[in-house]
Design a protein around this nucleic acid. Structure first.
Lengths: 117, 117
DNA sequence: TTATATACATAAGAAAATTATGTATATTTG
DNA sequence: CAAATATACATAATTTTCTTATGTATATAA
């Protein structure tokens, strides 16, 4: 029996695309399931990206021109690899900066001491 | 003509109640408009809480038992002061801790260097 | 062989904002 | 002094972005 404190629900809103794009920036080329697993591992189970959130986000980012896809077959199973387009590479930097600034402002607003992490 | 980079829209989602409760924790007793102005000032115009977001949030927090209200008249104009209930005082600490943890995880995920703010 | 993991996708519903609208008083400015 | 702006509340319609549920299918571990 576990008690799982997952803030993925409320606080994650608005930062999912940033996380996804950062992973692609770091690893060049990834497929959906891989992203969920890596984020799960990196966050020590604290950020669990659901499929219902991930796939629509990936499709939206592709429609916005930030991602391109290549389909690959592993045996009979399909895998859809996503990678950043040039405009996606610009966008991810913007998003990361924006998030860093947001964190900085929130630290001020919430009066968190500089080394509270 | 200005260019206003406001992340209040996307990133703020899920953290509005935390901000509001933190302000009440710090100042004891505040009315809605006062909260918007203080946060605006503190954040250097970066976090602009809209009325359509604030008032429903305050009403919800009151319904959840975290806030109580006192109505005051300034001349003929009404002012509704909110303050934390005992359970609200507990809750705000939880919320701040949760946010700090979230920031810490995001710093890891987004590979932000410790002093990037 | 059965459960679990991998791998995609979409639809219904909920939560929490934005934007728009409404009401009213107080103050500043031209 | 009139008009614009600031103060102060509130709610409704809409949008965004999740969760939860459902669906399909293959691969692997127990």
């Amino acid at each position: 029996m576990y008690i799982c404190i997952m803030y993925s629900s409320e606080l994650l809103k608005g930062s999912l695309k940033t996380i996804v794009m950062q992973q692609l920036k770091e690893h060049g080329k990834m497929y959906g399931y891989e992203i969920t697993q890596r984020v799960k591992e990196l966050s020590k189970e604290k950020i669990l990206i659901t499929e219902g959130a991930l796939y629509p986000a990936l499709h939206a980012l592709e429609a916005e021109g930030y991602l391109t896809t290549e389909t690959e077959f592993i045996g009979k199973r399909v895998r859809k690899y996503y990678s950043l387009t040039p405009s996606g590479q610009t966008k991810v930097l913007e998003k990361i900066n924006e998030f860093a600034e947001f964190m900085s402002t929130m630290k001020l607003i919430l009066q968190l001491q500089p080394n509270s992490n």
